[in-house]
Amino acid sequence: MGSQIVSLVVNDQRREFIARPGTSLLSALRESLGLMAAKRGCGQGTCGTCTVLVDDRPVMSCLVAVETIEGASVRTLEGVARGGELDEVQSAFVDGFATQCGFCTAGMIMSAEALLERDPDPSREDVVEAISGNVCRCTGYASIVAAILDAARRRRDAASSGGDAPAVPAGSEAADGAGVR
């Protein structure tokens, strides 16, 4: 049987690629579709750096055989910013120093996005559970949890004020001057 053409809707765009049997969604994203945000940390589904959303649910993309999700919607970090502007989760991570080496960050943000879409007002315990599959070696997690709760608040405030809160343009600095390129 061999390779087959697989079609997915990735970040709202229909994408097609040829997949050899045994190709994981992670491999397809990185090697066939040029989307490098999702990382290959372990290949065992135990580190969370490959977390993306499939049909709005967070999954370990290294464990998904692409043929099994033919036609599904896939969302990666590359699709999070809106029109070049960081969303509330991304901005909160920047402002809250919730990233150091950055290797866990894509997976963390996707787990956070999935949580906030399901629950706009999560408790600290909800956030902790949502990221329980995402390993971070640098931060000790406190700043990440705080950033996700902060993002939830920003998004709720924006929604209740009837419009989008001013977003931080991609590539600019945060107030503390964390934006060295």
Partner: peptide
């Protein structure tokens, strides 16, 4: 052999600092 056996504390295990 992997991060399911090489365990490190998650955000559920962290102390107040």
């Amino acid at each position: 052999r992997d991060f399911s056996e090489y365990l490190m504390p998650t955000a559920a295990d962290i102390p107040v600092q």
